[in-house]
Design a protein around this nucleic acid. Structure first.
Length: 263
DNA sequence: ATGTCAGGATGGTCCTGA
């Protein structure tokens, strides 16, 4: 079995001890991180080496964003896209080796999109939609089994938010974003493993605002996802959201997702 | 009831992004 995890860590340097605890408790073979908030040269390579993650691909930037994939299974760097064409580090792709024909693992941090769901008023919302459109064109060309994971910053289903009606005009759950995400999924025929294993209306939030009102009310949203190519779905044997991490001291606002594959 | 958090540059607090 190969265990693959994805976690928006919200600063990998600040939370490296939490990463170590998560690794100790869950032993993922591969860990995809988003919002590492550091340049590659300041990434805690030694800590990951000690944890057994010999193979590391880091696409970092100073202060904001940034993604990294670390692995105990050999991989080769495969791709590094900039779907905003503005230099932000939001994607890293690797090919896991030694597992049959190889598995492509794409780790992405889709832009949050600002506060106002109108590209005329808020350019960040337009950037988010354009990012999704460019990913969709890219996805149409994929010809190999591909697992797409990360913080997508979109909660697509009604049951993916605490109040569907209240959030229809809130960035992350607007129909225009949900439709764009749906086009991305259909461009390759990906299967949403979160809802494959926890069918609607099962609760599986992955993000809660740090603002205490929402946290106390359990007002979560499912912003983090793992999507599998159709030919990979039968090999996915288990999928969980690890909510324990929310109760740790100074947690990330996102929780990890873990899928076990029989590759 | 958007009530917080993190990083960075600055200069000992503010700004940006989320």
């Amino acid at each position: 079995m190969v265990k693959i995890a994805s976690w928006n860590i919200n600063s990998v340097r600040l939370r490296i001890d939490q990463v170590a605890r998560f690794v100790d408790e869950h032993e993922p073979d591969v860990l995809c991180l988003q919002e590492i908030k550091t340049l590659e040269k300041n990434f805690p390579h030694e800590a990951f080496e000690t944890l057994g993650y010999t193979y590391r691909a880091v696409h970092g930037q100073k202060g904001y964003h940034g993604v990294a994939t670390v692995s105990r299974i050999p991989f080769r760097d495969f791709s590094k896209h900039d779907w905003q064409d503005n230099g932000e580090a939001r994607h890293i792709g690797v090919e896991l080796l030694g597992r049959g024909q190889g598995l492509i693992l794409e780790n992405v941090y889709i832009p949050a999109g600002g506060d106002v769901p109108d590209r005329q008023v808020n350019p960040k919302f337009g950037q988010k939609l354009d990012f999704l459109d460019r990913m969709t064109r890219w996805a149409g060309e994929i010809e190999r089994p591909t697992l797409l994971v990360g913080d997508f910053n979109v909660a697509p289903l009604e049951c993916d938010v605490y109040d569907h009606r209240a959030l229809l005009k809130v960035v992350s759950h607007t129909p225009i974003e949900v439709e764009a995400l749906s086009r991305l999924r259909d461009a390759h025929g990906w299967v949403d493993l979160g809802r494959h294993f926890i069918p609607p209306p099962g609760r599986n939030y992955s993000w809660w605002s740090y603002r205490s009102y929402w946290r106390q009310k359990d007002h979560g949203r499912r912003l983090d996802h793992m999507w599998a190519s159709p030919e990979l779905v039968a090999q996915a044997k288990a999928h969980t959201f690890v909510e324990d991490t929310r109760r740790w001291e100074k947690p990330s606002d996102h929780v990890p997702l873990v899928t076990e594959f029989d590759l």
